[in-house]
């Protein structure tokens, strides 16, 4: 069992336009916790910093400031190659995340070999077949020698999940794992992720822009807007009782077939107006907090400035 404590994560990108340099703050003091057996959904529009957080968590990017603290049950910090074994990621686009040159077996076998989960070729092959069967890719013996272009999007994403779990990962970062898939396949892949999470007691960070699947799939929702957390809380509370203007906007932007009186979509849900991302509603604390500041200062800071 592994837990992740992310605190005050900041990521700045420097942008050069001609001679002028400017700074873009992609992630601004984001804190969150990933606990075994629970799913945290990170919701927000494109450019809100979701994928940057995923990249920092998988150590593809270094944070400008802030810490990612991963610890095992006995409180030993996870570092070095152990980090790669513990924290794995499922990428958004299954058509891009598998190397077209290599077989499915290669994709699942490599993590096993790198992290010395298996020793002999025979053992590796057996383990690969076992992994493929776990993600419902049957008959696995038949699928293993194939190459990615021979599989459908859903099957590829299953391979990507098998690859992520192959090193024995306890923390799974799923970056919009179903957004590129056919609607009819999405539920299957999400159910698979859910089952694996229950079986292995994984800590999952589910990154999405889709509130419906976020509520369906996760226990806690963190809403991100322009790099800052603007609302967080239990999944149902955030969806059913949104406090922040941006969350309300997201909720109304999702088409709801039950609503008869809805205004045309072109008017509704597109008007950004002047949404304030300096405050954050925390459903756990039941109060407004200041966003974009270190966690220690946030509490109570925005109570006076709250808009509602």
């Amino acid at each position: 069992m592994t837990r992740v404590h992310v605190s005050d994560l900041v990521k700045d990108y420097s942008i050069r336009t001609g001679l002028r340099r400017s700074r873009l703050r992609a992630v601004d003091h984001v804190s969150l916790d990933l606990v075994p057996g629970r799913t945290v959904a990170l919701v927000g529009e494109s450019g809100s910093g979701k994928s940057t957080i995923a990249k920092i968590l998988t150590r593809m990017e270094k944070p400008t400031s802030g810490t990612v603290d991963v610890r095992l049950d006995d409180d030993t910090p996870v570092q070095g190659s152990l980090y790669r074994r513990q924290v794995q990621m499922v990428f958004q686009d299954p058509f891009a995340s598998l190397n077209p040159f290599h077989s499915i077996e290669h994709h699942v076998a490599r993590p096993l070999r790198i992290h010395q989960r298996t020793r002999t070729a025979q053992e590796t092959h057996e383990r690969v077949v076992e992994m493929l069967e776990r993600v419902n890719l049957t008959p696995a013996e038949d699928i293993a020698p194939r190459r990615p272009h021979e599989l459908s999007g859903g099957q590829r994403q299953r391979v990507a999940i098998a690859r992520a779990l192959a090193p024995g990962a306890q923390v799974l970062i799923a970056d919009e794992p179903v957004s590129m898939l056919d609607v009819s396949i999405r539920l299957g892949v999400l159910n698979l992720l859910g089952r694996l999470q229950r079986e292995d007691r994984l800590a999952v960070l589910y990154i999405t822009h889709d509130l419906a699947t976020a509520r369906h799939f996760s226990d806690e929702i963190v809403v991100l807007y322009r790099g800052r957390v603007v609302e967080r809380g239990p999944a149902d509370a955030v969806i059913l009782d949104p406090h922040h203007d941006y969350t309300k906007l997201l909720a109304t932007a999702a088409p709801d077939p039950e609503r008869v009186d809805r205004v045309s979509l072109t008017q509704e849900g597109t008007d950004r107006g002047d949404i304030d991302n300096s405050v954050c509603y925390d459903h756990f604390a039941g109060e407004w907090q200041e966003a974009g500041v270190p966690a220690a200062q946030a509490r109570g800071g925005a109570a006076a400035r709250s808009t509602s």
Binding site: R110, R163, P167
Partner: peptide, 13 residues
């Protein structure tokens, strides 16, 4: 910059 290169780095290649 393709995802599969990132994925193999994440797996620890």
């Amino acid at each position: 910059n393709r995802d599969y290169v990132a994925a193999s780095k994440v797996s620890g290649e």
